[in-house]
Design a protein around this nucleic acid. Sequence first.
DNA 1: GAGTGGTCTAGACCACTTC
DNA 2: AAGTGGTCTAGACCACTCC
Lengths: 253, 253
Amino acid sequence: MGTTQLESVPEPKYWHLRTVLSEALDSEFSVGEILPNERDLAARFGVARATLRQALEQLELEGRLQRRRGVGTTVAPPRVGVAVGTEQHAWPGAPEDAWQPVDSAMEVPPAAVAAALETGSDDTVHTVRRSRTSHGQLVATELLYIPAASVPDLTAIDAPSGAARARAVLREVQHLPLEGQDRAVELGSARADDARDLDRLPGSPVLVVTTRFFAQGRTAALSVATYRADTCRLTFGDSPGVEIHHTPEQRAS
Amino acid sequence: MGTTQLESVPEPKYWHLRTVLSEALDSEFSVGEILPNERDLAARFGVARATLRQALEQLELEGRLQRRRGVGTTVAPPRVGVAVGTEQHAWPGAPEDAWQPVDSAMEVPPAAVAAALETGSDDTVHTVRRSRTSHGQLVATELLYIPAASVPDLTAIDAPSGAARARAVLREVQHLPLEGQDRAVELGSARADDARDLDRLPGSPVLVVTTRFFAQGRTAALSVATYRADTCRLTFGDSPGVEIHHTPEQRAS
DNA sequence: GAGTGGTCTAGACCACTTC
DNA sequence: AAGTGGTCTAGACCACTCC
């Protein structure tokens, strides 16, 4: 029984470890349970701590584990479904909107945003910060860019900043006739400020949802929303969405 | 000029490196250009190779770099927009469908899939493998699960496997009245086989799009599509989508 | 065979949470 | 103060591509 394993396909140690741990999570652990610490686990599997960490990182990416510095590693609950495709054809700030206004100010947007809004690269636009909560946890932050031309009646009549100003901007934008919207999802890594808001480390994987709102033949508003990739499953239908674990390695014939 | 930087927020080296490299990519490199190798870069920045690699991994996650073993690290082109939300209300295999059938067989699906399809956990279902190409490159693989009950006229009349069988299954499913669909997007890591198809390493980040197709009050088909997260931006409108680089750290006041 | 990125090690120290 | 995960180092060897 010396050499039970086959040498032909030497899969990386961390990948094999990931599989072993994944199966252990399925069968021997329950949600919220604390795993042994990394040094113990590494010793138990006979690998260096860095190798073990590579396996844990994979599992965290897949939403199976949650790690917190100074605390430990716990078994993560299933990802929460977060509706993104609902409120179709409604402006941000509409009554059923899931977002909470946080702050607003006039700012010069990043160059790519200015290009999409067709504003000059030095022009300021209304920038509204919002956040979104699900099951009592902050799951996303958003930056909403609205050119001054989209809300002409708002010229300096309201508070200069703060949540009140954010609400005023959102109130104004409802008056425009919304002609359509389009949306894109891509992988990103959390900027330092988003990471802080989302209680993650800088560089954590996030899902970036970019939404363009069209009115009067132009892009009248642009939203860049940053969702925690570890805890969120973005749903686009009206139903809550399927919970499919795509991880399993086996595929029975 | 000794201590220009402030010590108060000692950001990790790899994060700072990422920022420096990111700016260098913007200003001094063009798409497709080859970067110096990791050992040289690490020496140039005075860090260990592992630390440099942490920074490169971030940039690769963000779609800025492309690394290939044995070849080198190159500057990645902007992500390609891949339409996911079009073909709304059409079965897979409809004429305008972007997917290429690859193979098909009767298989026992993973437990979570069986649950969504409401089949017994030991029942086989039609499993169609398809792939999707964009700009000459394979960007996604798909597993499409169709319970035998959804295609009653297909009982063993066609080829036992292969692309021809896949086409036969897809042809049959068109006959059902499609009542609706819903969709979810989440982050995953590539399984060994998907990784091979997508020309990535096992564990590479992927965007998993799960689509349920409803007919006759049941889930009549379920698609699990795996997109390369580094090269793809999933778009959901009818227009090609915005190309927003969310990476920039600065946010001018 | 030379050069690349990918894996792995064994250690050290740091930042953070909890007691 | 003790214990956790996060960062970093300096090396080694492996798998792969290309010449």
